[in-house]
Design a protein around this nucleic acid. Structure first.
Lengths: 191, 191
DNA sequence: TGTACATCAGTGAACGCGCGTTCACTGATGTAC
DNA sequence: TGTACATCAGTGAACGCGCGTTCACTGATGTAC
């Protein structure tokens, strides 16, 4: 057998990793297969040995981005926090100026949500299952049950909307006002 | 003078109107100048007698969409409502399934926010001033002052995020859960 | 240890197509006489 | 009322370019002997 099986897997993962970043930064439509493969140190033709088509890569790149978000909101220092403590810490990360300024390393939802809504059903379903996983995780930290889940949903929506707005306005003063208002809104909530 | 001045203005408005709908439905990158002009009953070449370039049309199409949103959230039956009454009525409209299913007639922020964040500064500035106008209007309905403004910002963020998520998941049950959770979240808030 | 070989990851030319933009022009219009 | 005219909104061919995808191929690899 030529090449260890691991070799192709590593190349595949490298393409997904690069795509995940470029899609978030420049949009799915804004990132060509050519650009993508060159950034991965390969040439355009090799793409189809790894993916059926460009939308298949979109699915994998989204998964990759959600894994990062999950890590960011639940792992490390946030591992053992719950309730208000977790909400404050996770919200601080999500609504940070650094997140606003680095969409390529950030949440896939504000960066790619609109393009996903216009993508094939297969992509949207996979996206939905990642959203469910995120809401499950957040709901558990917020006390679990229907109440926790509901609060998690409202929380995620306000984070996502704040980030989308903050990035679009292209005015860091207004952007700060937006993220700050959302932070304070949740800060005030009893729990 | 050939043609009354009004004639060109009407054509211009028709292009902006069509663009405003197609951009929201198919995305800015997903809508070609050719498609656009044909939809307006014209041919591609005429475009540049009306707009410097495609991004100039984006700015005007966004303005058009924001005018519709403004109308929808503040005029007609909502004209005289304030506080909780306005919040409930306006939220009901924004978070409606009909809004989710008709992005082409809906809010520009979830539909085009991510593309705006990658657009030239000129577009982002114009978008920002529309967001400010919207927040001013909402803040006034919510009691005015810094508190009203802050609440308006959190409210708009959660609406926008809910709509973005609901459209992207491609699963109407989950989409309903999302919009419903956000509605209930604000329903519970004292004011 | 050295050589012949089969595998297959990746190459790069080519495909048809649509993109945004330019420009010499056409032809419908209201006006002047 | 009828005709000649200037204006300019809109036409459509052409520009170079990048898109996603296909495919005959090349050449690096680990294996067999």
């Amino acid at each position: 057998m030529p090449y260890p099986a691991e070799h192709k897997l590593r190349t595949h993962a490298r393409i997904v990793d690069i795509a995940s970043r470029l899609f978030r930064r420049d949009g799915y439509a804004g990132t060509g297969v050519d650009t993508l493969m060159n950034a991965a140190g390969l040439t355009r033709g090799g793409f189809y040995a790894h993916f059926r088509d460009k939308t298949a890569l979109l699915s994998e790149a989204l998964d990759r981005a959600f894994d990062e978000s999950y890590e960011n909101l639940f792992a490390g220092k946030l591992e053992d926090l719950v309730g208000r403590d977790w909400l404050r810490a996770a919200g601080g990360r999500y609504l940070a100026a650094s997140h606003r300024e680095s969409p390529d390393q950030g949440c896939a939802i504000p960066a790619l949500g609109a393009e996903v809504s216009r993508a094939p059903l297969r992509v949207r379903r996979r996206f939905a299952s990642q959203v469910r996983r995120m809401l499950d995780g957040m709901g558990a930290r917020l006390g679990g049950g229907a109440g926790g889940r509901r609060e998690a949903t409202a929380l995620l929506a306000s984070w996502v909307g704040a980030m989308l707005l903050a990035r679009a306005v292209g005015d860091s003063k207004l952007a700060d006002e937006i993220t700050q208002s959302v932070r304070e809104h949740w800060e005030k909530r009893a729990r």
